[in-house]
Design a protein around this nucleic acid. Structure first.
Lengths: 286, 286
DNA sequence: GTTCCGCATGAATCGATAG
DNA sequence: ACTATCGATTCATGCGGAA
């Protein structure tokens, strides 16, 4: 069965209405943070963030399957020397909407933004909020097991090898790695703290998360041919990863610039599949 | 000047009323989490947690100096498959009380509690909420600087050796380790993510945090002879650390068992000060 | 083909300056 | 007074060019 990667241009609040109920297995997204990325998105003020987001999360709740999961990557900024509270208010309001706030993963950013201030240190973490429709949901824990033991060494030793196997995916910290290399070793389950560096190699979009992030959650919450949705597509990281992992995906982007960029790359990949002499082996058409 | 370690038996909500305004430089505490430690504290139900805590935080706000800091170690538990929201509600209510929610540090527990559940991974982090009375407060950042990580350079050479060094310094992050060993290297400021292992050596109190935690915050927010307060003293970790670091401290504990235990140990230490041949040097009475 | 080094640059934040 | 913009601060990372 062929994988479909659907890229849409427009406001996700509107576009989502075109989709039926209960069709998505995983929503993974990183919406514009309050008052950030002004140049690209217009910047929602912190005090209006909840009102802006709730109509969208209402649609997300509708299109998500009962067994599906919604992962929301977000972090509140400092305003006037104090942390904003809009993320907490958002969680409280989404629960009233019917969402279950199941878990909060921590993304520890090893290379966080530099800076020096008299009253605070650098911010090195972001929230990955997990929401569900039901207490029972699909979770494939074995897919994200990690090798036990001295893992900084083993990681480094196998870095090049793994990179070759997983084509161009540059993934730090072992998350998102092809762990089939570790079949001979003991493996353990991870915790709810993820260690990944941000990637600085994406020059076309100001705020892409590292590929390891969607990779990890797609492994954990979906199986092959499931449907992944990113309503704030941006540079399309979620969709490219999903495609490579043999998942169907939908990406919605309000800015034509990013839409065009992703659309073009997706189409190029599709074409490659039909070219003679390509190296993708199994995904080659018969 | 001699250091005073004051241990009190009773309900902190009442005991705190005996103290004057603006006398404490740092409050560091880990209150009983909702519905946890039932055997020792009676267990406050999650839905009543905020109401239970607010009268106490009101007293804490009063006794804290305007330049002082309140660090609250807390983590919401899972109830019925969902994360409780009482911590978020508490933050919102404390802000109404007059507290500023300045920052949220993450304590990454390297060796977290074992366990295996079908729908979640092990919880490896806790919140360290920072509250202040004013936007300006005392912060001695240089005291917690850590050696610089030039690991992109060194990881290719001397792999094992350098990894070991880096690992120790990172794990220690200045906690409880003698940083003077690292004078040859340049030092950098830490981030708001702390990596500490939990300590399992305290068999008498069920929920003790590692000494590195109060050590780090006492270094960061107080100077010698300042006053540290722990209104939920438990096994007295905060006070023992404060005493060792030459800070005055107050510890309040509602359970006689823990009170007696800490009281006894504090008194023993005091006696040592008067014994001949003791090694405390400067703190020796004239 | 490696290894090494320099350099640009990030979901940041504060304080000063300008309107 | 109050908001908007800008420069300074700072460090892990990946890239490119050089040895």
């Amino acid at each position: 069965m062929e994988i479909k990667t659907e890229i849409r241009l427009g406001d996700c609040k509107q576009i989502l209405k075109e989709y039926n109920d209960n069709i998505v297995d995983l929503i993974f997204t990183s919406p514009p943070y309050a008052d950030q990325r002004k140049k690209t998105y217009g910047g929602i003020p912190p005090d209006k963030y909840v009102d802006w987001f709730l109509p969208i999360s209402e649609q997300l709740l509708r299109v998500l399957k009962p067994t599906g999961t919604f992962i929301l990557n977000i972090k509140e900024k400092v305003v006037n020397g104090e942390r904003s509270t809009y993320v907490m208010e958002l969680i409280l309001e989404m629960r009233k909407q019917g969402w279950l706030w199941t878990e909060e993963f921590i993304w520890h950013k090893r290379n966080c933004y530099p800076g020096k201030w008299p009253n605070r240190f650098r911010d090195a973490w972001e929230r990955l909020l997990q929401f569900n429709k039901n207490k029972k949901f699909n979770m494939y824990q074995k897919e994200v097991m990690i090798p036990m033991g001295d893992w900084s060494k083993t990681r480094l030793k196998n870095l090049s090898e793994t990179d070759l196997i997983r084509d161009e995916s540059k993934v730090g910290s072992g998350f998102g790695k092809n762990i089939s290399n570790w079949l001979n070793r003991d493996k353990v389950y991870p915790t709810n703290v993820l260690h990944l560096a941000t990637e600085c190699n994406n020059k076309n979009h100001s705020a892409a998360f590292p590929e390891g992030l969607p990779t990890w959650f797609i492994k954990l919450f979906t199986k092959s041919h499931d449907v992944v949705l990113d309503p704030f597509m941006g540079s399309g990281t979620t969709n490219f990863v999903a495609q490579r992992m043999n998942r169907n995906s939908i990406g919605i982007e309000i800015q034509k610039k990013y839409y065009d960029m992703v659309k073009k790359k997706i189409d190029e990949k599709k074409l490659v599949l039909f070219e003679p002499g390509e190296i993708y082996g199994k995904t080659k058409i018969k």
